[in-house]
Amino acid sequence: MKPAISIQKLNKSYKDEQALKNISFDVEQGELFGLIGPDGAGKSTLFRILTTLLLADNGEAEVMGLDVVDDFRNIRNRIGYMPGRFSLYQDLTVEENLDFFATIFGTTIEANYDLIKDIYVQLEPFKDRPAGKLSGGMKQKLALCCALIHKPEVLFLDEPTTGVDPVSRKEFWQMLKRLKQQGIAILVSTPYMDEAALCDRIALIQKGEILSIASPESINDSFHGTLVAMKSHRMYELLKALRIHPKVESCYAFGEYLNATLVEGVTDWKPIEQDMRDKGFDDLVAHDATVGIENVFMQLLSKTEA
């Protein structure tokens, strides 16, 4: 079986800025593949090339075995694309937007209703509302429906959850899971690291380069060094004290706790804990930290910047 998406040594520059540097990877059929990286990493450029809206400088890419340059018309009929910016017609109602996209692809809402039913029932109470007047979470759901209405084989979702609240985000990912179960391959990008855990595989991307590709479980194993979690009621002072400690490589806030990575070769954090107590952090709590994808990404980032 051919991969849903196949990318070979893709390069793209804008003037003197290299947006994509020698990118290669495959997305299998029925796979939920996450592209994780901050703004400006090159995610949208890659999406535009794969959806045949932008030409690469060199390298090759195929979607469902079709070349993104030679077979662009065929590809457009077989993929769904949800761009990063909300791009539906704001002054058309929910229903009109959906009808419009169905008609363009020569189909009807009824013909593929099964595919969007789960999502559309939540939108139905608002079907006469102009799309521009929907809340952020609802806009995303409508955009997803419009991208799905012609029953695509591959779905491209460029930051579908940016600016969406945590509850709506969780719901959105549950929908993606259900679509995947119906055999649709999905390439999705996000700046939220916690969403990465829900993908089959993820690629971490920064400044046009892929830093790592792996399953969410195995990517955490690539973390080097010892990670310790600490907290106190004086968090900012503790953060500053840990950062200048000679045995601490780096220290960042991670929700309720601070996460400190120890310098290479140091595995015992007890002496550091003692030093902090001596500095007056009487209520200090310290324990081994569980490595998360954000820790890995930050470690990779600081390595590429060093």
């Binding site: 901050p38 703004d39 960042y252 806030a253 990404f297 930050m298 600081s302």
Partner: peptide
């Protein structure tokens, strides 16, 4: 208003350092 949307995890934390400093 959502000051850190979309930035990388390190930049996001550096931004919070500024917030802490200002509050201090």
């Amino acid at each position: 208003d959502e000051p850190t949307g979309g930035v990388d995890p390190i930049a996001r934390r550096q931004f919070w350092d500024l917030i802490y400093e200002a509050a201090n």
